[in-house]
Each structure stands twice: as C-alpha cells, then as structure tokens.
Design a binder for these strands. Structure first.
Lengths: 341, 341
DNA sequence: TTGTATGCGTTATCAT
DNA sequence: ATGATAACGCATACAA
C-alpha cells in the first residue's frame, strides 16, 4: 500500500524484503537482466510498484562510475542566448535526442571565465560529457586545461582547434556566399550586409562568404556593418549603414541571422523603405523568427533542430565509447524563398 | 605534478596519502571545517591543487543524502518557451540565484503527460527540489501524486491549489486592469484586447483585469480575441479582431504580452494603422521584446528576472528546511510608459 | 585537533 | 538462476 509515512524513500533493500529476494536480484530486475525467472520478475515488479520505488541516481552513478547526465554549457547572458529562436530550436533538438536516452540534461550557465566553476563542474563526475554552445567559453576551455569528459561544440570553435575536437556546424561561408549569389542573380547590385560579431566564427564566416560573392561579381565590398546577433543591435547597424550610404544606396541586404533581419526590416520600414520592393532582405537560419514578422523571410536555412540532435548524438556516442565518430559534422543548408527577397 | 596518466580521477583517499593525513581530515578541509590546524589545511590544499582534486558529486550526494541540484521543469515545446524573452529573463533570474549557491540546475523538459518520466526523475534523489514553469505539467503533477521534493511554481498553478503550494507571481488581474485604466485615462474609448489562452492562469487573469476596467468605465467588453502568447498567433488574432470591428473600430489595444504586442503592431502597420496615433498599444511584461521592435512599447512591467530569482530563492530556502517561507510570493508591477501608448 | 570506523544505495564479482 | 559480499567516494559519529 505504499505507506512510508513521509519517511525516507524506498531502497533496493526494502524492495528486496517485500519481494522476499536478495538485493542483487532486485537490481537485476530493475536493470532488465534477462537471467531472472519470470515469477520472480513479477514479484519484484509488484514490490517496486507497491513501494513506488525509484532507483537512487547518486548511488547508481557511484557504483557504475558514470552519471547518465550531460551538461549543456551556454553563455553567461542567458537572456540573449535563449531569446534567439535559433538557439531555442537547437536546444529543442538536443532535448529531443536526450529524451529518448536514459540521460538527463544539466544546464550550465558559464561565465566567460570558466577556469573555475564550469571546469570544476565538468570534472566533478556528475556529467559524462558536455555540449558547449558558447564560443567564448569554448575558447577558454580549449585554451586552458581540457575537462576529462568528452566535449561537443555547437559551431566550430574559434580557436584554431586541434583535429581532436568534435563539433557540429554548417559551412557558413559557402552558405552565405550562395545566399548572396542569389541576390546577385536576382539582379541586385548594391548589396549590403549586416554581419555578426567578428570575434565569432559564425560572424566571420558569413561575412567572408558575403564578401566572396560580392567581390566575385565585381560589386562593392564596403556596404556592411557589424552587429551582435540581436534584433535591436541589427536595427542600429542598419541605421548606421543607411545613414552612411543613403536611403537609396542599397537594393538588397544580406543579414547574418533571421532575428537580426527582423530588426533590420523594422528600421527599413521606419524609413519608408519597402521590403522587398525597395530593399530585398535575405536572412540566415530559417528560425521561427523568419516567419514571426510581418514579411516572411527569404533565408538561408540551416537545420537547427537536427543540429541540436546531432550534437547530442555525437556526444552520446562518444560517451558510449564508440570509436568511429567523425570529428566534424557538417550539416547542409538550403535557400528558402519566401517574400523578403 | 598531477601526473595521473589518464587514469581515474583523484579521490579523497589519494589526496590524503599525498598530504599525509587521513581521509576525514581532507574531507574537513575540503568542506571548510573550522577545526583544522592551519598547517594541515595548507598541506591538504597543496595536495588538492597538485592532484587537481575535485570532489565526486555522486559520492557526496549519497553520503549527505542531498544532491545540491534542483530541476527546472519546462514545457515540452522548448522552442515556444524559450523564444519568449519573458521566460528567457526568468531563467536568467533563476540561474543568477542558483549560481551563487552550491546548487546546479537540471533542465527537465516535461511532456504534458508527466506521470512517467518527470515524476520518476523528481523522485530519484538527483534533485532536492524543482521549479515548475509549465502550467499544464504543473496541473498534472498537482492532480496526480506529488513528488517527494519541494516544488515552486512560476505563476499560480491553474488547478485550485491547496494552501500548501508555493508559487511566485504578480497580481495579473489587478495589473491588467491598471494598464487598461491607463488607456481609459488617456481618453481612449474603443479599447480592444488580445488575450492569452484561456486555459492558462496568466491568460485568464489578464483578460479578466481588462474586462474589469472596460466594464467599470462602461465601455464595450466584446472587443477581444484570444491568442497563444506567440507573436504570430497574436498577429492573427489582431487580424480577426480588426476584420470584425473594422480598421477604425479600435483606438487602443491591451495586449497580454510584449512578444504578442510585436506581432500585433506588425499587423497594425500592415493595415496602414499608425502606433500610437491611430491605435495605441499597451503591452505586458516589459521583456526585451518591448524595446526590440520599431516602436518602444508602453507596457505593464513585471520584474521577470527578480521573479526567477525569487523562485530559486524560495526553493532553496525550502530545501534548507526553513519553515517561515511564504507560500505566495507576489511581486509588484508598474506601468512603463514609452511610445506605443 | 585528528584518526577510525561505519553507512549512504547501487552495481558487480564471486560463489552456490 | 540466485544470494552473499565487496567495492564506489565521501561524510560523520565517535574515539583518541
């Protein structure tokens, strides 16, 4: 009748007593060992149900010397991070993959100086591995002592990474170039760009890809401004750019993320510029932000949810001791044409 | 020299050997016990540093019978959840409070049917308590067997909660009424509303507050449509409402969240309606979304980050065994006037 | 102040 | 197939 009067939670021991078997047998049943006779399995399961027994995870970790938990390391500024639907989608992918495993996910908010707490945590044995989606933090971890557990990076680490690093990413440079080329092919000639921060790989590579394309077509390569991957920051950058080149100085804009593109479009409309008639806008990500605004974004789609799932998958395989895991997982991108360009 | 050649991580035992003391003494030093002589403390710390010793968390949990971890239970649809800057801010508040404790945060993505995995997890001893920010899930947990660990809800649970539930919230109804009253005081008379879902307390209460105010002023109480707390959903709802009452049928709109307000403003502008000149728009939350769009939102501000911190604080105090913890923590709201109304 | 001994709840290695 | 029993790494009551 499960009447532990607010006492401590039931243990293997108690289940064993109720079922009239040994602890070892209960453990076997709980872990699905095949070599237990059917009637005993039944008896044990009955006892488990009656007592509402749930294995103690700490004890299990200790005995197994593995925790069945992985850490998700995200940058300090959680608000910024989570507010971008792109990351939210990645997290969704990660959790979906983790969910159909026995693993749980620990959210680790890392300071930019992870030398202390983060590293400590990664080495404390509570997690069997970690997914790092913060480049700055990732850099620091790479530069410093590496944790003892396997690591998978979301996005190529900025620091010249050794061959021994695992990461999931898209070919940002090629994708950005292809997107820009689409604008060129559509007849645009004054093509500007709002880029991400130049201290982040995704920022650098997408800017480079854009430059590859405009230079390849003999167009101006000075029509860009740098922003910070936020909507408002991008709006500001767009303002700077338009102030510099004039409201009719641009006929198209490659923006390095959909979230930023929403900010850019706001600024454009503020100035009475129509999208895409006066200025075509091309985004990047194909995140929920692409269709949240008034004008559906034409954008370079990257499979964020799949990327998240891939990160978790790579890590889980690493933890399982698989040896044939590829270091770089490069996912495909594609152009999704909607209304903004 | 820390030369464990890729062997297993150092243990208390090894530190004790190196420092030439007993395990108990090392444990005392590591846990900051005051009654250890200075020179021994020094010797132990040297050994700890040399071996790069980090306490094994599982063993510690087992011995202490507490895990120093809390779970953050969020709804299944992570994308939706995290994409709202309001929740991102709450998470930030939670992590900030957790960060200056010894606790870590476990992200638990709950299915709407938490009877199985979620509950199991909460009872497995890996977490000492949980913060639940998912009303549906919360309801199921409340309706069913309650976990053995303390729970704190973000937002009043929908189910008629017993006096024994802990939650952090604002007075949504009064705040919504006050916001609507502001619109009335500014001379608006055709005041509509885009509300949240009516199966969520925040949705219901804010709608009720709006109705309280318009009815109190003798205005129409039929100018509202229900949405789902997303930007695009709100845009659709606004479209329905305007289609119903005509483009000049409204001179103000109370929208139940800033994120939704951004969608509404998009729709308004789409129809050539100026904000706030033709239609004043009042938001709710004062989340980052309030200032991310083209027109800065006048909004009913609730202290989201403080709310998150409060949730963590209440939970941590509960876990610490404090007895004087208030069941309801109601945070103040205030009107922040910007440009949209 | 420091050390000894025991327990925390599981898993795993032995016998049987 | 099942049952003792010894780890797992740490904290702590008790001794010294």
């Amino acid at each position: 009748m499960a009447m532990d009067a607010a006492g401590s939670p039931p243990t293997l021991e108690m289940v064993a007593r109720v079922a009239g078997v040994s602890r070892a047998t209960v453990s076997r049943v709980v872990n699905g060992s095949p070599k237990v006779s059917a009637d005993i399995v039944e008896a044990v399961n009955a006892a488990v149900a009656e007592l509402r027994y749930v294995p103690n995870r700490a004890a299990r970790s200790l005995a197994r010397r593995s925790s069945n938990a992985i850490a998700l390391v995200v940058p300090e500024d959680v608000t910024w991070f989570f507010s971008d639907p792109y990351f939210a989608t990645i997290v969704k992918g990660i959790t979906s993959r983790v969910d159909d495993s026995e693993f749980v996910l620990n959210l680790l908010v890392a300071s930019t100086d992870p030398h202390q707490k983060t590293l400590r945590y990664l080495n404390s044995g509570v997690v069997d591995g970690a997914i790092v989606i913060s480049h700055h933090v990732g850099d620091a971890i790479l530069a410093d002592t590496r944790p003892a557990v396997p690591l998978v990076f979301g996005g190529r680490p900025a620091l010249a990474a050794g061959q021994d690093d695992y990461f999931v990413d898209v070919d940002n440079r090629a994708a950005a170039a292809a997107g820009t080329q689409y604008l060129i092919d559509r007849g645009h000639r004054r093509i500007g760009s709002i880029s991400g921060p130049v201290d982040m790989p995704a920022g650098i590579d997408r800017l480079d890809g854009y430059l590859d394309a405009v230079r390849g077509a003999g167009l101006s390569d000075e029509l860009f401004e740098t922003a910070d991957f936020t909507s408002s920051g991008a709006a500001l950058a767009a303002r700077r750019l338009l102030d510099r080149v004039g409201d009719d100085g641009l006929d198209a804009l490659f923006v390095a993320s959909d979230l930023m593109a929403t900010g850019v479009i706001g600024e454009l409309r503020e100035r009475g510029l129509r999208v895409p008639d006066d200025v075509a806008v091309l985004g990047f990500d194909d995140s929920p932000a692409a269709v949240a605004g008034p004008v559906p974004l034409t954008t370079v789609a990257q499979p964020s949810e799949a990327a998240g799932a891939a990160m978790a998958d790579v890590l889980l395989r690493l933890i399982a001791g698989e040896t044939e895991v590829p270091h770089a997982t490069i996912l495909p991108t594609e152009l999704v044409v909607r209304e903004s360009a």
